[in-house]
Design a protein around this nucleic acid. Structure first.
Lengths: 108, 108
DNA sequence: TTATTTACTCTACATTGTTTAGGATATATA
DNA sequence: TATATATCCTAAACAATGTAGAGTAAATAA
């Protein structure tokens, strides 16, 4: 694949990070994608994708403090980097251009 | 990958078929994706994806008559099957749901 | 019969997506 | 302080999708 391909799942994960803002860590990211798309998201798939996105330099993570709850390993928070935002926008633009004019037909 | 995953490139190819209607064969499909998305599409990538989509039962092809032009091997025409249209719509819905409310933010 | 044009195929490999299982780090409670 | 339990993350193997380079097939032109 090209050096800057963005798969559908990567796309969804990045959008979840964008939506969640400062509360973007593993579990809510998974919940957000599941809630909005209706598809099941396995933990491993999500965390693996998050690591790959970081290796590509599109997102960045930091480890937070453990919270005083019943259980609780420290959370890893994610945020989009400018390059990631740009890539996401490009991908969206491509799809919007292709959908232009046929979206209505698709819904019949 | 899941039994019914739809990659980004597959998504674009299916939309090109939808857009082109009865004139949907290899070369115009490639041209359409290139013209609307700005990305370069290699012939091999397109034809391979078309064959895979047909194996999955989302599109169907038939070989046409050779046209009286300078060169001219017969064209292979493609069209979406109902299952393919459904899958395309599902994929679009998932993305629209995730974009809802953040598309504007993405454009700043 | 050879060259040229249009259309499509083969093979190999890189990247992305999924699954199954398990590990790490914290608090609760006896 | 040992054991249970909750939350969050990792490892490894494999399947599906995406890309590139070279090549084949079938037609017309000269």
């Amino acid at each position: 694949m090209g050096r800057d391909a963005l798969g559908e799942f990567e796309h969804l994960i990045m959008l979840a990070i964008l939506r969640l803002g400062p509360e973007a860590y593993g579990v809510p990211i998974i919940d957000e994608v599941e809630a909005r798309t209706g598809r099941t998201v396995s933990e491993a798939a999500a965390y693996l994708t998050l690591r790959r996105l970081e290796e590509k330099g599109w997102i960045k993570s930091r480890v937070g403090e453990p919270t005083p709850e019943r259980g609780g390993r420290a959370k890893r928070y994610f945020k989009l980097l400018p390059v990631g935002v740009r890539r996401l926008r490009e991908s969206r633009t491509a799809l919007v251009q292709m959908w232009d004019g046929v979206a209505a037909e698709l819904d019949r």
